[in-house]
Design a protein around this nucleic acid. Structure first.
Lengths: 351, 351
DNA sequence: ATTAGCACTCAATGGGTGAGAGTGCTAACA
DNA sequence: TGTTAGCACTCTCACCCATTGAGTGCTAAT
């Protein structure tokens, strides 16, 4: 029995060769291949012995007796933590990305969408981007606009320049003076507060001061609630979902469909990304490390972006466990830089 | 040689049987099957003769010599126009649909999204819904709101209760009186007009009257343009894209991927649906009738909804040519009714 | 006009076989 | 003692071939 710490140089080199090769070829890799392609100065028999050890330790496995070895999830885990070399982006790739991100975009959601498209194009996998999440966000101001006799528009502005609106239908006509009063009153009780800090009694009190039907006030308040909810629900964008169909591990239609369906479940993705977000700089979930069963053949690499401590979003890449980790990591890091810069430009330091 | 008009009763009955059977089984259907399953009181040999005729006329074809027949696009065309029986929805299906649509929804886009989900669930195919399209829509009003020292919010309201907004960054502080003036001025030159009716000189003139930097005025105008563009770009929702993977005709992964990718191209879908919308009540595009090559194995059934002459959207179903036309038609019709009703409720008669 | 019967065609199925890739083990070697 | 060449063994995969079965077209009988 050999200890994990005793993965000596040679074993590491061999493991790395196996994984590098497998990532590239998707075929079980045998001892001869390693001996030939990677110059380790070792005979195939030696490598065979080492491979037997690695298998016993659980880093690799054999699909069947007379096949080569494929990395296990544990193998990949060791690879990303110790062996992988980060493969920096080519000059022209960087140029392409920068060009796409430099186009003037004024809306945060457009920016995010753009970023996800770029990542999926550059990596060839599925990109997932979660917009900056503002939980418990403060309401900056509320505006009521008279659209026509029967409708009001409620506009809620939160920090970071995020705006949502909602129509409110009502029956009677309400003249502009009343609207203005209502507007002012609502601003007093809402601005600078989070949603939970606004109590119903406050809203009811409004009615005494202003001569507007109670149900209108209630509807307006519901609309505000609705807008805040929308603001606090982080948007998630996926791009390149069908990319996974390119990889031989998903040749099986049933499996492919399962995976596609899972990726469509925004809730799940949300959860997935959310889990991953808070802790580290760069988070790997490899194969069976995902709780979700249908994703046991997928890996997901995520990282956070945004202004530290204020509003952070998540970007990530989903692909087969046999992923080009080195390249994906550098792509994600690069995009993160650009996103951070852009967010700073758009929002400055306010919150 | 037999004429198309001379598709006699018997040929029609046989053609219908073939298509019904093929839609259900996805297998080439032979003369024996027809003779046994559908009681036409005919021997298989007779049916064989008739089938030979139908093949010569182009309604059906043989994948290879010793296989049964499958319908051609021409066959399906004849089927939907003359043979198909509309298969009305089951009571409980109608109940499910109604229940889903009756939930209180205040936003048109939510409603549309909901509708597409329902259709794809009920039919098992891909649903496509285009939101009501307001080309050349009149601007009802424009509102400017001061967000903070450096930002303005521009809100554009169009007919039908459609609202879009956009932030404008500026450098200097602008006080509320100026905002109000600018607001009023913009309203005068924009409201009741379409975008093309607003000329640049008009915008430039504003500057003389109001003491606000020229670039701010320009930015605001750009924001208005942007909002109008968004209003006029009809949203398209697709639901159940991966449903097509359920059908054996897309067992081929390459083909499946092609189709999925095509469906993701919103532009193409837009075009597709747009083409289909104007003319008839119910529009069928069967297989090769689609211009797009990747869609030659798909059929699309569309119809329009909305308030006649005012704003019409499109709903449709995309599936394999071997589609359960009868059921899809009734589903679409039913959803259309509900959508129309709902739109009327939400928008009343205004425009 | 219809149909029973028959010869024919062709795709699909399944067993059999050989090639190839890879392993584990042993014995020889530095 | 670590390394390696050699060899027997295992297992998959691709290919071939015969068989099967569904379906046709044609002909002759009803």
């Amino acid at each position: 029995m050999v200890w994990e710490k005793e993965l000596n140089e040679r074993k590491r080199a061999i493991l790395k060769s196996i994984i590098d090769d497998y990532i590239q070829s998707a075929q079980p890799v045998g001892s001869r291949t390693i001996a030939r392609k990677h110059e380790l100065g070792l005979g195939s028999a030696t490598i065979r012995n080492e491979m037997a050890d690695l298998e016993e330790l659980g880093y690799i496995s054999q699909p069947h007796t007379s096949a080569g070895r494929i990395p296990s999830d544990k193998g990949y885990r060791f690879y990303v933590e110790n062996l992988m070399q980060i493969q920096s982006l080519a000059k022209n790739e960087m140029a392409i990305i920068r060009k796409a991100m430099d186009e003037k975009i004024e809306e945060i959601n457009e920016l995010i969408k753009r970023a996800s498209t770029i990542i999926s194009n550059i990596t060839g996998y599925t990109a997932v981007v979660m917009a900056p999440q503002l939980t418990r966000s403060l309401i900056k101001s509320v505006q009521l606009l008279n659209i026509d006799e029967r409708r009001l528009l409620v506009v809620v502005v939160a920090g970071g320049g995020i705006v949502h609106n909602r129509l409110v239908n009502h029956c009677g006509t309400i003249d502009n003076t009343h609207i203005a009063k209502l507007n002012q009153a609502f601003n007093i009780i809402t601005s600078g507060k989070t949603l939970d800090q606004i109590s119903m009694p406050m809203v009811r009190d409004l009615q005494k001061d202003i001569n507007v039907p109670a149900d209108v006030i209630l509807s307006v308040f519901e609309a505000i609630e609705d807008c805040v909810r929308k603001i606090e629900t982080a948007d998630v964008y996926l791009d390149g979902i069908t990319n996974i169909l390119n990889y031989p591990e998903f040749n099986d239609l049933i499996k492919a469909r399962e995976v596609l369906d899972i990726l469509k479940e925004k809730d799940i993705i949300n959860q997935l990304v959310f889990d991953a977000s808070s802790k580290k700089q760069l988070e790997f979930k490899i194969g069976s490390e995902n709780e979700i069963n249908e994703m046991k053949d997928l890996s997901i690499i995520t990282t956070v972006y945004g202004r530290e401590g204020k509003d952070i979003g998540t970007i990530g890449v989903i692909g087969p466990t046999r992923m080009t980790y080195g390249k994906v990591v550098s792509s994600i890091k690069y995009i993160r830089e650009l996103l951070n810069r852009e967010m700073l430009r758009m929002f400055g330091d306010d919150s």
